[in-house]
Amino acid sequence: MELYKDPFQRDIFESLINRDNQTNSFENIISWFTNLKMFANLEIKECNIDDLDFWSVSEDSISHNSGKYFEVLGIKCTVGNRELSEWCQPIIRQREEGVIGFIVKKINGVLHILIQAKLEAGNFDILEMAPTVQCITGSYTNPEHSVEYLDYFLNKKGIVHYDVIQSEEGGRFFHEQNNNIVIEVAESDLNQIHPNFIWMTFNQAKEFIKFNNYFNIEARSLLACITPV
């Protein structure tokens, strides 16, 4: 009797339990991530919103004049079962549906995930491990910016195993939805990858999830959607 009749779920399960045939050792992944941190730098400066080009402030929102990127709204919340019954807060509204996706492929017969080291403001230690593509509040169709491997998801270049619109956390994001996608490519594809990316098995991903400040929330959420255990 087969545990998983679906071939992709079986491949994920085998990748979860397999400690052999890993294209990168756990130590190699740690070394890759640590080396990138040595050269990563993020400088944050406080400024007056009125001094920023193309951003406008209205009575209840802050937004970009182009209508792209994101909008910051001011809202008033009223509830009956919290420690506070009423409060005011800012909340972010995305301008377009986001894309969060993993590219996976078999290497030496074992399914691997393409993970990126992503620099974001607010990360505890500058970099975190993220999905292959993560475009949530930004305008990924903006020609001024290039997102590695985005075309695989926009053009469905591979076998689509998972393609679902999911709502995000509602306490800080207003009606935010992101397209969560998992695409499998041929083993002959993507043999040369960007240095900010690395292949790892589902077993290795499971190990990193045990520790804080490695896998970000988007990667954790997408893994939870597709892993059988």
Rank of each mutant, 00 (worst) to 15 (best):
K105M: 15
K106T: 10
I107T: 05
G109Y: 10
G109I: 12
G109C: 14
L111V: 07
H112N: 15
I113V: 15
I113W: 01
Q116R: 11
A117M: 02
A117K: 02
G122D: 01
G122T: 04
G122N: 03
G122C: 03
F124P: 00
D125R: 08
L127S: 04
E128K: 13
M129S: 04
P131V: 07
P131M: 06
Q134K: 11
I136L: 10
I136C: 10
I136K: 07
S139I: 00
S139C: 09
Y140P: 02
T141F: 12
P143F: 14
P143D: 12
H145W: 11
H145T: 11
S146F: 14
S146H: 12
E148R: 11
E148M: 09
Y149M: 06
L150A: 08
D151S: 13
Y152Q: 00
Y152L: 06
F153K: 00
L154H: 05
L154V: 15
G158Y: 10
G158F: 14
G158W: 14
I159M: 10
V160P: 08
V160H: 10
Y162I: 03
Y162E: 04
Y162C: 04
D163T: 06
D163I: 03
I165R: 11
I165H: 05
Q166C: 12
Q166M: 11
Q166K: 11
S167L: 08
S167T: 14
E168L: 11
E169W: 04
G170N: 07
R172M: 09
R172P: 04
H175F: 12
Q177W: 01
Q177S: 09
I181N: 02
V182H: 05
I183N: 01
E184C: 14
E184G: 08
V185I: 15
V185T: 14
A186S: 14
E187I: 13
E187C: 10
S188N: 15
D189W: 02
L190V: 13
N191K: 12
I193R: 03
I193F: 05
I193L: 10
I193K: 06
I193H: 06
H194Y: 11
H194L: 03
H194E: 08
P195Y: 07
F197A: 01
I198K: 05
W199H: 06
W199D: 00
M200W: 03
M200L: 15
M200T: 07
M200K: 05
F202Y: 12
N203A: 14
N203C: 13
Q204T: 15
Q204Y: 07
K206I: 05
K206Q: 12
E207H: 07
F211C: 02
Y214Q: 06
F215A: 13
N216Y: 03
E218S: 12
A219P: 00
A219K: 01
S221M: 10
